[in-house]
Amino acid sequence: MRRVALAVAFSLALPARGEEIQLPQPAIDALTQIDELPSTAQLDGAFGDQALMNLQMIALDESSIDPGVQLRAVRALTHYCNPLPCSASDPVHTTLTTVATNPRYQDARSGSDLLMLRAAIESLGILRVPGDVTILVPQLQHASRDIRAATAHALRDLGNTQAIAALRARYQQEQVPQVRIAISDALRVLGQPI
């Protein structure tokens, strides 16, 4: 297996499938903090002017990156779309939609793959691209209560009232109090409280 080193000065292309990504220590440090999320300044310090590309590479890797690092990279991508709401064509958005619609993650029922889906859903909510309703709404039916709750929060953050009908419908059948509360909160913010 070829190894591709991510480094501050050179990381200009996404690795080909099967290539193993080696992270420089500053990147690992930035993306493994226990009680803080990396700030933009910290990410820039770790990756230099290639932070966005490196984070994309980490987020899209499917073989060699530590899941803990990858989760934080997905979340950290949201630092690199300014201003918000993000453009649908922005590379941050396209990367996150790629992760969120990856069947490996969408079909996951447990484990770190499910956490990746949750990370992508949460991040899409932050970007506030109205059209992401079509990506998020189906996740209200996900088998995982944590994904359903995260989706309700993301739809709340998205602010698109087109999600109201789907949220109401899910609320009617939802049995888990955690998710019902999340949906109720989303509907309240969207102006249609239960």
């Binding site: 009680d35 999320l37 979340r75 950290a76 991040s123 995260a150």
Partner: peptide, 13 residues
């Protein structure tokens, strides 16, 4: 707790 948001936070105090 089940999860912490933002994703990636492992502990808080």
């Amino acid at each position: 707790v089940r999860t912490l948001s933002p994703v990636g936070l492992q502990a808080f105090g």
